[in-house]
Design a protein around this nucleic acid. Sequence first.
DNA 1: TTAACATAGTTGCATATGCAACTAATTTAA
DNA 2: TTAAATTAGTTGCATATGCAACTATGTTAA
Lengths: 154, 154
Amino acid sequence: MRKIIFENTILPSIGKLAKFTGFYFSDLFHENGIDLTKEQWLVLKKLHDKNGQVQNDLAFITNRSKTSLARLITTVEKKGYVSRIHSKIDKRINQIYLTESGKEIFKRSLPVMQNIINDLQDGITNDELSSTINVLNKIQKNLIKKHKTKQTNL
Amino acid sequence: MRKIIFENTILPSIGKLAKFTGFYFSDLFHENGIDLTKEQWLVLKKLHDKNGQVQNDLAFITNRSKTSLARLITTVEKKGYVSRIHSKIDKRINQIYLTESGKEIFKRSLPVMQNIINDLQDGITNDELSSTINVLNKIQKNLIKKHKTKQTNL
DNA sequence: TTAACATAGTTGCATATGCAACTAATTTAA
DNA sequence: TTAAATTAGTTGCATATGCAACTATGTTAA
């Protein structure tokens, strides 16, 4: 097996790009007065798709540990964007609902998000985009196949 | 401008993949008795490339804020992998050096890293890889162009 | 039916991260 | 040459993250 030069592999590109998109996200949200981190935004988005989801399910679909998600919920709950409702049918679970204020800020975030994605994909053809997404998904499958399921729910 | 469906863009792929590579990295390092996070590994790698670098330069090349890097150094210093040396020429700067123990663990990490990259890129052709890296770099440039330089040193 | 097991969520602990404000040291410009 | 600006690093504060161990509840199997 040939020796691999770290810099020539896809690994550093992925890491750097994730960082840069995070910075960009944070910049534009801040500039537009959207008081959300990208993690918080993702939670609101998943609730906007389907309101009242159970904490553990949210953890699963956002690829987080249940610990991390629980604390994210606490943060957005404090901000008044979601409410945690303890189920009476199954007393173990919490269902999470978007509040009116949560719906409002999510709605306001959408055009900003569109700008972010436009800026991101600027000058890149649809073919390039779809083949890139395709490769990224393949890599993802390689990893999931091998990653042992832990508390992370993967 | 056409309405963008978040799920169809490259954004979620990037985020998820970064997470999954992180999990995989952590799994394999743990299984192989390498007591390093991916962030710590990157710092050791940069020092292995060029020993004695200044904190701020390390922050720049690893795309971190100087705060974050300073604390990373403190962590790996406590583990005994690097030493912080206060310069006598310019009393503002710290130069960071790999210790023998740091060199040793980095050397032990290399084959593990090779495995990670092999697993990651498994079943993906060289053409796919290089075009993907190319697109990711384009996106990165789009973002850097627009991101205002802050303490992050970008 | 009750004991074993599984599930949902929380807490403690450790790491990583960035911004703003700060100190100390160096460089630049008046 | 001295005052102003810049640079390197640290500290406080807030967020995000995961693992292990824990509690409470619910399900399953003997």
